[in-house]
Design a binder for these strands. Structure first.
Length: 268
DNA sequence: ATCCCGTCCTGGAGGC
DNA sequence: TGCCTCCAGGACGGGA
């Protein structure tokens, strides 16, 4: 199992850098429901140049210029990658682009939680998304929001309007490295803990990007390669196994409907 | 407003 | 072995 969170989407973005400047020659939408929003006609993308490939939170953005954006969200099992030209269509292929270079970009998503969107106004579409973790003011904004809320800190890290890009795996890893119990209410965190949380958030995500993301089974980057962060996971998926720091068995509880892994000894 | 929960979906895991 | 059931999880919408 795996989740495309910020480091995975960032990895995909980087491996797709080579498609910048290329033109869209043709497209295929095999699963109409995969197109979640349509500010303009899909047929318009034909002939457009991919001027830029960006990431915002867990969204991948192909900027086609002139307020024409193709935004992709990978949900929990999605892949978005360059494929060998003319290789046969695989199962769960929902959308495909043919570029003038002859290479193809494919969107494959077995569980169909993800989707693509045609966006005309980027600022409007992302207006409710929280700051990027590396924004200068992100740790401060994060701390301010956390302090005012009663919900468990784990749930707040997953809230995309609080901070962009963190999912279930990295939330657990960040809280472990910050030494904070995931069940604690945001309001009761000390200023010291909030500073530590902001620092560890960046460090864990940077580590994830450096290792090209977490691969359990499905995940591949834009070139179809696996990531290596799974070997670095300290708590996620390790319930019952000894903590690497103190040997206490890692526990798993449900918080806000999500499985949450933590060390009862190292996290307070 | 805010929080919580159900819904979507499929493949993999576990039970018998 | 094979079949069945359960479960994971992000975003979103509805209800309390």
């Amino acid at each position: 199992m795996w989740l495309p969170e910020l480091p995975e989407v960032e990895t995909i973005k980087r491996t797709l850098a080579a498609i910048q400047g290329q033109y869209i020659e043709e497209y295929w939408l095999y699963t109409p429901s995969a197109l979640k929003r349509q500010d303009f006609l899909l047929s318009e993308i034909k002939g457009h140049q991919i001027e830029d490939v960006r990431r915002r939170g867990k969204f991948l953005i192909l900027d086609l210029g002139k307020d024409r954006l193709l935004v992709v969200h990978l949900g929990m099992s999605g892949r978005f990658y360059r494929s060998v030209p003319k290789s046969p269509n695989e199962k769960h292929l929902h959308f495909k682009l043919l570029l003038t270079s002859g290479e193809e970009i494919r969107y494959v998503d077995p569980r169909r939680f993800g989707g693509i969107r045609l966006i005309a106004d980027e600022n409007d579409f992302f207006r409710n998304l929280g700051p990027e973790p590396w924004d200068d003011d992100a740790p401060l904004k994060l701390a301010q929001k956390i302090k005012r809320k009663r919900s468990p800190i784990k749930s707040m890290l997953l809230d995309q309007s609080v901070i962009a890009g963190i999912g279930n795996i990295y939330a657990d890893e960040i809280l472990f490295r910050a030494g904070i119990d995931p069940r604690r209410s945001g309001m009761e965190l000390t200023d010291e803990e909030l500073v530590k949380l902001g620092q560890e958030m960046r460090l864990v995500l940077e580590d994830g990007i450096a290792k090209r993301g977490t691969t359990f089974r499905d995940y591949r980057d834009g070139n179809g390669q696996r990531g290596e962060f799974a070997a670095s996971l300290a708590v996620y998926g390790r319930q019952g196994e000894p903590c690497y720091r103190c040997r206490t068995p890692i526990e798993c509880v449900r918080i806000g409907g999500r499985s949450t892994h933590y060390c009862p000894q190292c996290q307070h």
